[in-house]
Design a protein around this nucleic acid. Structure first.
Lengths: 343, 343
DNA sequence: GCGTAAGTTTTACGCGCGTAAAAAATAAAT
DNA sequence: ATTTATTTTTTACGCGCGTAAAACTTACGC
């Protein structure tokens, strides 16, 4: 196949009979050369298996074809899923995605942005921590690199934000729970650093008020990202002490709900919407594991695909038009009710 | 803090009063310059916030400080965990890890190696698919880049392999299950592309033979990485049809076990090791979710940390000594029995 | 067949840094 | 203080490619 190792574009130019600048243009954008020369190049490419040196290519370019994707915690399947969806979008648009996780540490988020900066990315898709993110760092970063936020919003930061409409999502769930039984209590973490958590609490309160029910909010203490653990331990205590005034609990997210389900099982409390059940538990997010909990979790599904697609295409548009859009856009997608057995 | 933007090492040399070649040496290895000059450089660094251009740096170097980490499926929390552990090891050793997922697609594994190759990595840590991996591609790659395999072995490929001792792990579980009740049946996927799956089946057979029990193997049909789904649907069918000759089932991995637990719950089969339980289910891997299943899953914990550490340090040694070791090493770590409620 | 637009080649420079060699400066040892 | 070993500076070149400008070639319409 390969006669000998091609060392650089110069050599490939001589063996292919095409001038180096033309080759350079081809590799930047195959459509920028004439049909006939493109064929010639591609034929030569098959025979010689040459690829431009990534580092040399990116050295002089102001901006590369790299797109950074930063998520707060990749071990959370939610972020794995949405991170992957975004990754795929980037690849199919001809960009090179670089997926980074901050492993639950806001400082790592800073470091990730820092190291991304030196990669001169064309743009960055960031799912920030939210309140525990350093807004200064992100805003400064945003002035140098096109930045689109997703999942969690940070006010006035980045060119756009794409996420789920928590008010719609929680509102719909509250309405469903009320119609199908009784008004829910709300279970969340006390130290919720995520802006979605705050929105969800507010949404719960509003929805309950609209329906004429009193709101009951229960906050579990606990730090970090072990939501299941917190849901299980703290939620379990609340169940044991019989603190909840109604027999229906809406958890701020699925991972807390998963924890609480395990606590309920441990305590012998039968969860579900059937006659023989004494407790209903619902979540938010449609976590990949939610369909395998016992019982399977009733929850609100975020539209992963739409969020990923919208975030990516928004970023691409900004990159390609080069326009810092004047008005920062916020796009919210509706969640869908997924009725399973837990509520 | 920063007077003005430093554009390159030349400028930083002039503002810091250190010559550029010395700076270059410092950035390659801070220990290679005299103590006093190091201090001077670091002081200047604090004031001016300059960082060498990654692309220019890597252009001429034969080998970079990059280390590729490739896992087959990042959405599987097992790989997220171990991938992260490896990542941390790399960072603390002064390398730049690049974590790539093949998203369950063996072709993507090839592509990942391909794109890694153009990044001229110092070395690569690969958790291969196993049988569905393309051994030719990997072996060819291994000739160009130091390669250490982990989790799943591919014969004669790479400089070393680090993983879990499936025979010890399964053997111990089988013995526990026999001692604490009755001999287990074995539940796995029919089309198990993972070499660990094969080892585990063999280990089950051997262990059962050693203990004088007949082996009972049940294979679920199904493709892909939706192990929970397969465990739930196919395992559920087997439970319904009452196919298992004993009331104890050892699943080839936790994800299958999680699926089967959900099926058991759906079918009203009480799982656990208590008197009131009619079925015991055990797994392998200590999946992060296993402690929150209903009931919590008895399983064998892999020593993530040890595997990650061993794989990384092995690779570092190969990189730093530059020695293609003559004898390919295979290191296996023992699993630990985690007794929870399911068996 | 000619004119024009579009694409290609030639030529040449620059990017930011690695690195080699020789000269100079510094530190350590005698 | 002198020699010696170590480190730094000076000088200079090269890496592989982007890219600009001018000359050239090709394609296409009339």
């Amino acid at each position: 196949m390969a006669d000998r190792k091609i060392r650089n574009m110069e050599e490939f130019a001589s063996v292919s009979g095409i001038s180096r600048p033309t080759l350079s243009r081809y590799f930047n954008d195959p459509a920028s050369v004439r049909e006939s020369t493109r064929k010639r190049i591609e034929k030569a490419l098959e025979q010689h298996d040459y690829r431009p040196n990534v580092y040399a290519v990116n050295q002089n370019r102001r901006t590369t074809k790299n797109i950074g994707i930063v998520v707060p915690y990749l071990a959370d399947p939610f972020f794995t899923e949405i991170g992957r969806a975004v990754e795929v979008e980037c690849i199919s648009a001809g960009y090179s995605p670089i997926l980074l996780s901050s492993h639950g540490d806001p400082n790592l988020e800073k470091e990730n942005l820092e190291s991304l900066r030196s990669l001169k990315p064309a743009g960055v898709l960031l799912a920030p921590f939210g309140r525990s993110s350093d807004p200064g760092t992100i805003q400064k970063f945003s002035k140098e690199v096109p930045l689109v936020l997703f999942d969690a919003n940070v006010a006035e930061t980045g060119e756009a934000f794409i996420g789920t409409d928590n008010f719609q999502s929680v509102g719909l769930m509250v309405e469903y729970l009320c119609r199908s039984g009784e008004p829910p209590c709300f279970f969340e973490m006390k130290s919720a650093s995520n802006p979605n958590a705050n929105k969800r609490r507010q949404a719960y309160q509003e929805s309950m008020a609209n329906l004429g029910h009193p709101a009951h909010i229960f906050q579990a203490k606990g730090e970090g990202w072990n939501f299941e653990e917190i849901g299980s331990v703290e939620g379990g205590k609340m169940l044991e002490q019989n603190l909840f005034p109604t027999r229906t609990i809406l958890c701020s997210n699925d991972r807390l709900a998963i924890g609480m389900l395990s606590a309920a099982y441990r305590l012998g409390i039968r969860v579900g919407h059937g006659q023989d059940c004494v407790l209903r538990i619902a979540g938010q997010d449609d976590h990949p594991f939610s369909r395998f909990t016992c019982p399977p979790l009733t929850t609100m599904a975020q539209d992963y695909a739409a969020i990923a697609n919208s975030a990516a295409t928004t970023l691409f548009r900004i990159i390609e038009t080069g326009s810092q859009s004047f008005n920062r856009q916020e796009t919210l997608f509706d969640g869908k009710l997924v009725m399973r057995d837990s509520a």
